[in-house]
Nucleic acid binder design. Structure first.
Lengths: 339, 339
DNA sequence: TCAATAAATGACAACGTTGTCAAAGACGCG
DNA sequence: CGCGTCTTTGACAACGTTGTCATTTATTGA
């Protein structure tokens, strides 16, 4: 690997002068600069980050720790958003995947410390409270898609309550009155919050909510969920007084509802309107009719996590520790207006 | 940050002794070791990787460069596989996403060099030939899901030809004779190879292949594809002499075929058998009936890429530069046996 | 007990970079 | 021309770690 010293020798100047040029220090003669630049180019010098780091320069590497988010189709967008924000400053992401294993996680915290990363985004697949074990790393940590109930660590979470409201409001405005709901597992916060939002929308519209139409689309434990939306939907739709629309906990649930409709020879949206959540494009855009859904703002969360981290370094004053990111409606073709 | 020096002072020994203990050097007295361990624990010492790197130790960080693979639901499994293999040795992945931008890519190669990563996996979203621009990084590079036609860089690609064969063979064995095909865009190698495999299977079975049933399920350019499988499938299925089964270029195409079937009140698999490719679980497992498909061995490719990289460091002799990874059939419920 | 050997420990340099400070050179002005 | 000032350059130390080699301490055998 080419070092400053080698370049300096070739160019016949001191190491420090080359260093100055590499770092854009203006205190160097234009003629010298040009002649050294040639050698830099020619030898293809690339500064050794490790050496820089040792001199106390802030690392250009950030850490992303996650239970599974980086490797799950649901939420890669957090990674994309973070990378987009990082790219502008030529910074990068070191990605660690604990798969929910606490011991692994501890190992990764050490690793981040060993690498002296500039900050860490801790992202969860599900919106839920999460206590960081022993981070053994105390610098800037931003929580994405989860929050630490017992601490004041800054966190970014989707506004699930408003998202649920959006789902229901959209259907209510289009004349739907009997609306089924197929939720995610109740252990995660998203489920509870969206449920609240949905009920608030019904109340605001002056429509009664039939609790018997509120069913689980998934059962089981966190990290061990099982999909039962198809069966639940079939049952719900076989009922003589079947709903005209179904609100789904995510787009995969919606996919099962499409399947249930097809199974019963019901057409979407003529016979049944379907509302998703997540906007997982591989599903929402490819279904026919395409899926009207509420988007999880994962890209935005990733982007803002990086911004937040940068800000948190400059200022030390208090700030809102839990930021709600809105979930925009993505209107497509799966919901009809009743007349 | 705690340094060796601090620990040494507290423990009343030399820096070097602490270093030895941290690195598990046996040449240190048991009593000394124990007493120092206490201080290491207490101060929560974590070695500074940057300093180690400077001493010439191999970095524990590997790079993953990709056009979009890390951030696309289709192929995150390459990342998962690589991380699984890396985890055993406490190594990690630095992930860079060029989005296909050549300039960005050059930037990232520099970055990898600056970080002195131990090796780089270059992964593409699509199986296709790819010439690395100017890596400006010459150490171990493994290509995943693509290959460099002009060089002998080791690469790992799915065995698409055999995958296509598997798709067709499975249906032919179950008595299907009129089989439609909805391909990906023709620019990528996967399309061509699978087409060859499919035709080989027909030939082996002694069945004639109706070329008019071979249609594009997607059109457009690489990185700018457009899905047209729904329309193509509807057209194909409206034909009086419609196929009894359709082979799809990927699971998203299959999803559109399900939609087309529902649109025409055809039931899967009674009226139509559907065969996918990729085994994108969010689709294949959630569809009802669940999708029989041929899996892209992305996890395996990621895992083996890491292995290959490690091997390539120890040995210098020649080896097979292009490794085909088999695509296993994942049998579910979307194909029926004709009688 | 003493020498010879083995085990344990430490002093020091080096890795590649940048901050500090001093030196050298260029320039302006009376 | 001589002085002060500004610009440009370089010597040197330090960052935290580990390899080399020397030194100290413990152990063994006669």
């Amino acid at each position: 690997m080419v070092t400053l010293r080698e370049v300096a020798e070739r160019a016949g100047v001191s190491i420090k002068t080359v260093s100055r040029i590499v770092n854009g220090d203006p205190a160097v003669n234009a003629k010298t600069r040009d002649s050294v630049q040639v050698h830099l180019q020619h030898l293809n010098y690339v500064p050794n980050q490790a050496a820089r780091l040792m001199r106390g320069v802030q690392s250009s590497v950030y850490g992303l720790m996650t239970d599974a988010v980086a490797t799950t189709p649901y939420s890669v967008d957090i990674v994309r958003g973070a990378q987009a924000a990082l790219k502008e400053q030529n910074q990068t992401l070191l990605i660690a995947n604990s798969n929910g294993d606490v011991e692994q996680e501890a190992e990764f915290w050490r690793m981040f410390r060993a690498q002296r990363v500039s900050g860490v985004i801790y992202a969860s697949v599900f919106h839920r409270p999460h206590e960081l074990g022993q981070p053994s790393y105390n610098d800037s940590i931003i929580l994405a898609n989860c929050f630490a109930s017992a601490s004041d660590r800054p966190s970014l979470v989707p506004d699930d309550e408003a998202g649920g409201y959006t789902q229901a409001e959209y259907l209510l405005k289009r004349g739907h009155r009997r609306i089924g709901v197929l939720t995610l597992i109740p252990q995660i916060d998203a489920t509870r919050l969206r449920g609240l939002g949905i009920r608030r929308a019904f109340k605001d519209a002056g429509v009664g909510f039939d609790e018997s139409l509120d069913q689980q689309g998934m059962i089981g434990m966190v990290h061990g969920e099982q999909m039962v939306a198809f069966e639940a939907a079939v049952k719900m739709l076989q009922n003589k007084n079947r709903p005209t629309a179904i609100i789904c906990g995510n787009d995969a649930v919606a996919l099962q509802v499409y399947s249930a409709a097809a199974h019963l020879d019901l057409h979407v949206p003529q016979d049944l309107s379907i509302m998703g959540f997540d906007d997982l494009k591989v599903i929402s855009e490819n279904l026919r009719p395409s899926l009207t859904t509420v988007a999880l703002p994962y890209f935005e969360i990733g982007r803002r996590a990086v911004e937040l981290m940068r800000e948190s370094k400059n200022q030390t004053e208090g700030w809102s520790p839990k930021i709600l990111v809105p979930c925009p409606l993505v209107e497509r073709e799966s919901c009809r207006t009743l007349n």
